[in-house]
Design a protein around this nucleic acid. Structure first.
Lengths: 211, 211
DNA sequence: GCCCTGTGACTAACGGCGTTAGTTTTATGG
DNA sequence: CCATAAAACTAACGCCGTTAGTCACAGGGC
């Protein structure tokens, strides 16, 4: 079936199907052959539209990052930080299997770099020194990535027998998975509030005391 | 070369060589064939000592977690939390390529579960309610895992051209990688201090006000 | 001292992986 | 209308994890 009238493939359809596979079956389940299968095509055909698996992953990742909202920095840095952190986390959690890949930083991905630029610009315009702006961006990213990555609670097996006798303080750990989403959200908000609080105090000191 | 006088392999030597490969070449570079090669052996021989690649990874991971120090909880919860967080982070950073795997929680790994038990026990004995103990453990893990992931990837390309013109606020981002370790450490300490500060206030409220 | 069993190495193979080369047919621009 | 490019294909290479089956030596029981 060479060169059909209407092309069966396009970069967009490939990206979409790729993200579907990742969401349904996991990052490791994404193979060029499976992807081709889902699109009713042979693996080699994909290479007419996409340079390789790695680049495809980057493009999928960049698409996901478009949901990250940095508009809050137009109000004030604290609002910007909270909005960025929450929307960033939501974007990651919408595609949990992609988190390990997304976590490795913006690399050369257009959207991710644009978001990073906005965050850094928002912080420095609010009076934060370069070095602090960098650290604040980093700390916040730690929280977001950490909370999306671990899904702390989901990391514990949910069979009670695992903990019996041997781990007395974890006697309720088998219930964690049931409430994972809620616990993770609350823990994230706890740490985010702590960070913004602390930073607000610091910002006050930095912008009033000196000079 | 069947059945040599002195066995060439042992679970320990396999684990060690596996961690070496991961540290030198990355998580994806660890293959049973490469591992066997390094041990002067054929891949199939490994299966006489190790049930499979996945279990091997868990055993390697558990070994790394033995460096995590939870003894600080014998003093007070804040000291315990700081000691745990810092030694946990150090353990991850010593093996950055293993972080994505370690981040997925204790699973059924003995050492990881023991550490989790100690943390939870240390917090509840200090008066933290169950729910808070869980959230504090989670928040702290977010910071640790997030900061270890970020440093691994050193997320930003270090070629200045990437940022020229297009990302004005990132005009110094190409220098990040050079100072990655220091920035990551400072950002981590910033967020950890903020968290412990905030929690100390909360602990005070919880243990004095009620009743 | 000899056999017997189990250990720990081997070779060969299966199916899946990413990717490339080369082929074929159709769509499209000059 | 023809040349060229596009978009599908088949076949193959060298990896991967894992299993089955083979073989020689080690150590214990007689």
């Amino acid at each position: 079936m060479p060169r059909p009238s209407n092309p069966l493939l396009s970069p967009d359809r490939i990206r979409l199907a790729g993200l579907e596979i990742i969401d349904e079956l996991g990052l490791e389940a994404l193979s060029m052959r499976r992807l081709a299968d889902r699109l009713g095509v042979k693996a080699a055909s994909l290479y007419n539209h996409v340079p390789g698996k790695d680049e495809l992953l980057h493009e999928i990742a960049d698409g996901v990052m478009r949901a990250v909202d940095v508009s809050g920095f137009e109000q004030d840095w604290a609002t910007g930080l909270r909005t960025w952190a929450r929307s960033f986390r939501a974007a990651l959690i919408a595609h949990p299997h992609l988190v390990p890949f997304l976590a490795s930083g913006p690399a050369r991905r257009e959207t991710a770099l644009r978001r990073a630029d906005a965050v850094h610009g928002g912080l420095t315009s609010a009076g934060w020194p370069q070095r602090y702006a960098t650290m604040i961006g980093a700390s916040t990213k730690y929280l977001v990535v950490g909370s999306a990555m671990g899904s702390f609670s989901a990391g514990f097996p949910d069979e009670a027998e695992v903990y019996d006798e041997r781990f007395p303080h974890l006697d309720r750990a088998h219930l964690l998975r049931e409430h994972a989403a809620e616990i993770d959200a609350d823990s994230f908000e706890l740490a985010l509030a702590a960070l913004v609080d602390s930073l607000t105090r610091l910002h006050h000191d930095l912008t009033t005391k000196p000079d």
